[in-house]
């Protein structure tokens, strides 16, 4: 990855991330988030994580974020006017966040990152072949469990979000009446 591209993407993703946090309009927040995700996706691809990078764009930015958009529309959220939230929380929260950032920054002084890294990749690193080999051998069980998780999530989402229809309400009422009658 060329250094210029990295600096551009880094600046873009940080600005976009700040946009997520600072924008008043939820839709603008969301767009900023999508931009962050895309910038990170390009960062992935730049580090030879090609499949994961594209998946980030397809699944994360292209599908999950659309879901967010739908929900924002569905709730018809107004733009927040004026400062929101607790002032104290904002103050102390910002302080704590700054503290965390400072701590992490101390970690990241290059002389401390004394790991042995190789910058050369084997042929096919990050390709769909390599990812699949790892995914379907070492992480097979985790992969299968993930499929169950997704199924559960789908069922859970449907169960949570659907409204009770009038017919069902009527049916429940009749059922409880039957129970009372029996008792």
């Amino acid at each position: 990855m060329p250094a210029g591209l990295f600096w551009f993407l880094a600046a873009l993703s940080i600005l976009a991330a700040l946009g997520v946090v600072l924008q008043r309009n939820p839709v603008h927040c969301l767009l900023a988030l999508v931009l962050t995700l895309l910038a990170i996706a390009v960062l992935f691809i730049g580090q030879d994580a090609i499949v994961v990078g594209f998946l980030q764009a397809i699944v994360y930015a292209g599908a999950v974020m659309v879901l967010f958009l739908f929900v924002i529309w569905l709730l018809n959220l107004p733009v927040e006017s004026g400062p929101t939230g607790h002032l104290a929380l904002k103050l102390f929260g910002t302080l704590a966040v700054a503290a965390l950032l400072a701590e992490l920054a101390v970690f990241l002084v290059p002389s401390r990152l004394q790991l042995k890294f190789s910058s050369a990749h084997a042929a096919g690193y990050g390709s769909i072949d390599a990812l699949s080999q790892t995914l379907f051998s070492e992480y097979l069980i985790a992969f299968e469990v993930t499929s169950v998780l997704l199924l559960v999530a789908v069922i859970g989402a449907v169960a949570l979000a659907r409204r009770t229809t009038q017919a069902e309400l009527q049916e429940r009422k009749e059922a409880s009446a039957r129970v009372e009658k029996a008792a």
């Binding site: 996706a41 090609i50 499949v51 594209f54 998946l55 764009a57 397809i58 292209g62 659309v66 390709s127």
Partner: peptide, 16 residues
């Protein structure tokens, strides 16, 4: 070399 994925990605972004 991952053109097929690239297609899907750009088409996905087109939704916005």
């Amino acid at each position: 070399n991952a053109a097929a994925l690239y297609l899907l990605a750009t088409i996905g972004i087109g939704v916005y």
